[in-house]
């Protein structure tokens, strides 16, 4: 506890809360049809993005996936350009050409995201390769889900990265479901961290709902990578409180009929933000009034982001052909 500054802990809390409030602010717009692109909410998984990114510098690289609002924000992205992108506006981070699944912010090292499962892992290896060639000590992080561990390219990537000692951290966010399919139906064994062992890659399984544990693990991984001892593999155990896509939580008995209510209830008790908030209050890091103030600030930032998106224009029809080539 003592080894963290108050500012650092407050910042971790703020990072997670910004993600959660932003995600939940999209629920109604999705349901009433104002948001039309596919949106994969990461409510419940905020501690992974926040903990990992807190260990990185601005110049370090991250690559995301279909569920990357949290990665984008944790790496320093602005909420207003994120929300505008989701609404398909010209002011969005991808100028309305990408939508929720294609978020980018190169100035902050967020190099992009893509929904082809495991499709960005090799790209992150490439960023690490660039860093290695230039002797820069920049670290690259690949965020992917448990579903991606069934794609062959991940294994090619671990082999290549280990062979060339590249500064990459493979971060598997294991939320136990690949869209509708429970991880136990995808794999004969579920200790995902172990898949890194045959490639001589240090691997750690961590409670992905405990932001400080994620941060400590990430710090170790980043230090190894900067030291030339990369790559590193982190399996972060977490859970999405919403469904695979859209606000639906996929409770059994509803039309999507995937997850048991008891399972969801159990994970709600492990909510990474509520638990961290309690921890900060119990340890006198933050007072009740400070927490309220942070919540008020973030609510306002998110509200303003929606106003910004609402007031922004759609891309010009005359610019349909723009950006095919540079």
């Amino acid at each position: 506890m003592k080894k963290y500054s108050k500012d650092f802990l407050r910042q971790l809390y703020r990072t997670m809360l910004r993600i959660r409030v932003c995600e939940e602010s999209l629920v109604d717009p999705i349901l009433n049809g104002d948001v039309r692109c596919p949106v994969h909410l990461c409510s419940g998984e905020e501690a992974v993005a926040a903990g990992i990114c807190a260990s990185l510098n601005e110049t370090d690289y991250i690559f995301g996936n279909h569920r990357s609002h949290g990665h984008f924000l944790a790496k320093g992205g602005r909420i207003d350009v994120l929300v505008a992108e989701i609404y398909g506006k010209e002011t969005g981070c991808s100028r309305g050409r990408g939508g929720s699944m294609h978020l980018i912010d190169p100035e902050n090292g967020m190099m992009g995201a893509a929904p082809i499962v495991a499709g960005t892992i090799s790209l992150a290896v490439g960023a690490a390769l660039a860093s290695h060639i230039r002797r820069e000590k920049r670290v690259s992080v690949s965020f992917f889900g448990d579903g991606a561990t069934n794609e062959g390219v991940l294994f090619e990537c671990m082999n290549l990265a280990s062979l060339k000692k590249l500064p990459i951290i493979f971060v598997c966010e294991n939320n136990f479901y690949a869209t509708h399919m429970p991880v136990a139906e995808c794999r004969p064994e579920c200790d995902i961290a172990d898949i890194a062992k045959p490639f001589n890659i240090p691997n750690v399984r961590v409670d992905g709902n405990n932001v400080l544990k994620v941060f400590e693990t990430a710090k170790e991984a980043v230090a190894a990578c900067r030291d030339g001892s990369g790559p590193f593999f982190i399996e972060a155990i977490t859970y999405r409180l919403r469904g695979h896509v859209g606000p639906d939580d996929n409770i059994q008995g509803t039309h999507t009929d995937i997850r048991p209510q008891e399972e969801i209830d159990m994970w709600k008790k492990k909510d990474p933000i509520i638990n961290f908030e309690r921890y900060l209050l119990d340890n006198d890091v933050l007072s009740e009034s400070e927490v309220s103030e942070i919540k008020r600030e973030i609510d306002q930032e998110v509200r303003e982001a929606h106003v910004f998106a609402d007031n922004s224009s759609y891309p010009e029809e005359s610019e349909l052909n723009a950006y095919v080539f540079k």
Binding site: Y61, F63, M111, G112, G119, I121, S122, L123, A124, V125, G126, A127, A128, L129, A130, S131, I133, S140, V153, E156, C157, N159, L160
Partner: peptide, 12 residues
């Protein structure tokens, strides 16, 4: 993986 790494390096 190798082609993807080349793509990622080009992005970087």
């Amino acid at each position: 993986a190798v082609t993807g790494a080349a793509v990622g390096a080009a992005m970087s």
